[in-house]
Design a protein around this nucleic acid. Structure first.
Lengths: 234, 234
DNA sequence: CGATTCGTACTTGTCTACAAGCTGTGGACG
DNA sequence: CGTCCACAGCTTGTAGACAAGTACGAATCG
């Protein structure tokens, strides 16, 4: 009774172990289930996932390559901290990628590309209507990814997706710390961006994306800056 | 006599194995010693580096994360091919990062930042004077990296460095295939960029970086496009 | 009583062994 | 003669074991 003989029949196929561990860990980090700065123990994870340490290490190496964990040599690896002091550099990059991907979508999209964009926008609107912050974060990222894919530049797409992933952590903290109401205006801005892309209005798409991104950046930054100032006053 | 007892005394320290393999493989890929599309055999590499397959695999996972190798599940991993058909997307990204990093350097640099920039520019000028294409590729990348560091945005810096790495492969092919003379004008353009950064002239820095990047892009693309057209005519 | 040094336990980095999956060849059958 | 299937060899993915390096605590010395 102390151990189940076949508690979880290893129905996972060869080659899926490392990927499964990677996906799970990545989600847990981005969803703050594993908080920034927390230590990661390979043996513990190996037991939890029912695999040996080898796939665990492979997943950790990949996560380290994406900057989601930091590995200290011969010492434990930790979930990466969020650099609140340099948040502005993050938003600089994010806004630029908002602009570039939306511009390129307006230039290069094909009519069929609009379908996934509209589908993502629909889900985003539902999340906002339901005041579901977590779903809003995900569907917003999906919406912009769909636009970036219509822009057809894989380099921008990869970089953008990395930024959006990191933003997932920041936005979770934002909505956890400060129960902001989800603004309906984001939905309208998205609609305007779709319209600009559809009529291939590059200048308008750029301007809308810039305003959209800067608005988000301003909201988040003002909160964290306030928090930072509070910390300084203690 | 069949085997040396201590052919290579393993003087490598614990934790250096994977890093050494990674650095070596990365250099060999970027220097085209391992040509694009060539298969990578883990056992063979393990013998070559005198380590087991584990550090080899770790290095390969990291390289795959950077897109330098492609791993087919349960099958061999290969050195990534260069996507000649979408080169324009690469140069779009590169030119944008030229512009952004130079802009930010003009805005945010501190006087001490100019020293490494000037040092890199000196080495670049020497490489051009010596008509050493390989050194020119490296020193050009170092020059722009120094500028990007003065811009103080780690996200742009990381993305830019990735692009410059990939460009190393493309430029090697360019100069191998087509013995172009190294243009002195690149040196002058660099000098102009340094001057614009130093006097914090953002608009001028942006324009110079844009022209500089587009000139390189045009040269390389015209060659590859010509090559592509030739292939079509066969 | 405090600081330093030694020892012990734990964690990671690497190695070796084994099993699953793919590739290619050979033979049999239509 | 062409096509399909089975087997063999090889490569990768995973497991488990071992060694090195680190951190923490205890004991000893000043």
């Amino acid at each position: 009774m102390t151990e189940e003989p076949e508690a979880a029949p290893p129905e996972r196929k060869r080659g899926s172990g490392a990927r499964m561990v990677y996906d799970s860990l990545r989600d847990e980090i981005l969803d703050l289930v594993l908080p920034p700065g927390s230590a990661i123990d390979e043996v513990q994870l190996a037991e939890r996932f029912g695999v040996s340490r080898t796939p665990i290490r492979e997943a950790l190496v990949r996560l380290a390559g994406e900057g989601l964990v930091n590995t200290l040599p011969n010492r434990s690896t930790m979930v990466s901290n969020i650099d609140y002091l340099n948040l502005h550099t993050y938003f600089d990059a994010l806004v630029l990628m908002y602009r570039v991907t939306t511009r390129l979508a307006a230039e290069h999209h094909r009519p069929a590309d609009l379908e996934p964009i509209r589908a993502a926008q629909l889900q985003f609107a539902e999340a906002v209507a339901a005041q579901d912050a977590l779903a809003m974060i995900d569907t917003n990222a999906a919406f912009h990814t769909a636009i970036a894919e219509a822009g057809r530049n894989p380099h921008f797409l990869a970089f953008f997706n990395r930024l959006l992933d990191q933003g997932r952590r920041i936005l979770r903290i934002y909505y956890n710390a400060y129960e902001d109401r989800l603004p309906q205006e984001f939905v309208d801005e998205h609609e305007a961006m779709i319209a600009a892309v559809e009529r291939r209005d590059v200048a308008s798409a750029d301007a809308l994306a810039k305003a959209h991104g800067e608005q988000i950046a301003h909201k988040v930054q003002s909160l964290f800056l306030r928090g930072g100032r509070l910390d300084m006053e203690l």
